[in-house]
Design a binder for these strands. Structure first.
Lengths: 108, 108
DNA sequence: TGACCAACCTCAGTTAACGAGGCATATTGA
DNA sequence: TCAATATGCCTCGTTAACTGAGGTTGGTCA
């Protein structure tokens, strides 16, 4: 998968995933990897900064949770403003796809 | 339109356009602007470097043409290797869209 | 004990697009 | 007439996201 195409789609992906419920970083990476059959491996260096940025803008919030074995996970959950932002992002995404499709031609 | 989403789609767009026939830079910008009703304005700072890069890799070639009024235009046309590259890019594009769609959910 | 997995993170380097600028000539309208 | 706009090419410093590689802590298992 072309790295350049991916740019900009990360927030959309993250917010969409978090709509299904709170998740922690490692879990997000594994989920994406599994659901795409390994085609797309979200890198840690892309994920964590993206999550922190989404949290800084209060589209998502985080809380630490200690597992039974004593280890900690940081869960992220989507906020109301994040839902609104996601809605706008989705619209933008669809416009973008339609635009490119118009030039490239429809999927065969 | 989010600038970040656009990243990586420029070569795909350019090669697709040049499939219709040779075009010059200014014409490409105007064509994109008109066909998208102004939604997407391809910037010169993005276009020319992209064209030059595609030419450096010999996916496209260029020639100068003098108009009747004496002014010059630089036309770009797609090369056989560019067609092959476009084909691969298209496939990649479709995979990318399907992938994101799988997370975001189908268009409503 | 040592290897590996889980889980968090940072940071230097790369790359594409943006914005603003420059250069030159033709056309148009006040 | 002459200034503004349009045509047409280009470069370059800055911005922002991603990569790849690094680091840390702690659990699990042979």
């Amino acid at each position: 998968m072309d790295r350049e195409l991916l740019k900009g789609s990360t927030p959309l992906l993250l917010l969409s995933l978090l709509c299904e419920g709170p998740m922690y970083g490692y879990q997000i990476i594994e989920t994406v990897r599994q659901r795409t059959d390994g085609t797309y491996t979200l890198k840690e260096g892309a994920l964590y900064p993206a999550l922190h940025k989404l949290e800084a803008t209060e589209f998502i919030s985080s809380y630490w949770e200690t597992q039974e074995n004593g280890r900690e996970r940081r869960y992220y959950s989507i906020q109301p403003s994040g839902l609104a932002f996601l809605k706008a992002k989705k619209k933008e995404w669809n416009q973008f796809v339609d635009m490119v499709q118009a030039f490239v031609g429809p999927k065969v």
